[in-house]
């Protein structure tokens, strides 16, 4: 082989590799580097502090609450999204004009930007004039504070996230359901299987690759929630909706403690990485292909 023939495959991959390295790998490495320094973004010098940022973080009560908020938010969002989209998918998994229309309608939030959605939902959830309080008022419920109260703020954000993610997840589930051959249902019917048995012992195991995939991507996405908090609550009230990425953003770009923020970023990287490894190790055995 000539030199060019040897180099050719690498030259084909080089552009993508360069961009990937520049915009993904390099920032991660730089962040790890910065986490061991104390820097305010403006001064030309950085002070090396070793692991002090980490020590501060892990003792900071605010940070621990942030971790707790993010975890609760992730668990609730993933649980509701997966549960509701599975139910919706079972209902919509049929040909028909109505089904096609609903499939398109629930998918539309997926293509709208987080920023637009956050702004609109902020108005919808306004305690005095919001549409949501008017709507629940029709059923006789009193007005709720939604984003303005510590107790309901996180769940309000969960509602927004679930509303946005429902369409995509439902469509993926519908695709998964359609890959199940029709004669499995028929064989089960002839085996005198009731609907619940067919679902729990046949459909659900056959959907396990889809569930596996959706849980992990929803989990990783939820852990990194930012837009809704930045626009709707700014971490409040009283830190009840302060999540990891918003915390990093605040300390990095508002308080200019880059080193501290980078340390928090490293912790985020570590958590998500650990989650993924544990998830794959534990659950990949239970997935039937």
């Amino acid at each position: 082989m000539t030199l060019w023939e040897k180099l050719r495959p690498y030259s084909m991959v080089a552009p993508a590799l360069t961009i990937f390295s520049l915009f993904f790998i390099y920032p991660i490495l730089y962040m790890i580097y910065l986490s061991m320094y104390d820097w305010n973004f403006i001064s030309p010098t950085k002070n090396f502090v070793g692991l002090q940022n980490f020590a501060e973080l892990l003792q900071e009560k605010e940070f621990l609450q942030v971790i707790s908020n993010t975890t609760i938010y992730t668990l609730l969002t993933v649980a509701f999204i997966i549960g509701l989209s599975l139910i919706l998918a079972l209902w919509l998994n049929r040909a028909g004009l109505f089904q096609s229309f609903v499939q398109g309608a629930i998918f539309s939030p997926h293509i709208v930007s987080w920023v637009s959605i956050s702004m609109i939902w902020a108005w919808v959830m306004d305690p005095q004039y919001g549409l949501l309080n008017w709507f629940i008022g029709l059923f006789g419920f009193g007005k709720l504070a939604w984003l303005s109260s510590q107790s309901t703020s996180l769940i309000s954000l969960v509602i927004v996230a679930v509303w946005k993610g429902l369409g995509y997840n439902t469509l993926v589930f519908i695709a998964g359901l359609q890959s199940i051959p029709k004669d499995i249902y028929e064989a089960a019917a002839l085996d005198h299987s009731k609907s619940w048995t067919t679902f729990s012992r046949l459909i659900l195991p056959m959907l396990s690759p889809t569930i596996f995939f959706l849980v992990i991507i929803n989990m990783i996405g939820s852990f990194q929630v930012f837009e809704t908090i930045a626009i709707m609550t700014q971490g409040g009230p009283v830190n009840s909706t302060n999540t990891l990425v918003y915390y990093i953003y605040e300390y990095g770009f508002r308080f200019f403690k880059i080193g501290y923020a980078s340390a928090a970023g490293v912790i985020l990287l570590f958590i998500v990485g650990l989650l993924t490894i544990v998830y794959f190790k534990m659950l990949s055995k239970r997935v039937h292909y």
Binding site: P181, D183, A187, A189, H192, L202, M206
Partner: peptide
């Protein structure tokens, strides 16, 4: 219902439960 007719069927593609 099919399950009550006391009929058993062998399908062309077998329709075995893969999991």
């Amino acid at each position: 219902q099919p399950g009550l007719r006391d009929v058993a069927m062998v399908f062309q593609n077998y329709a075995l439960y893969p999991t």
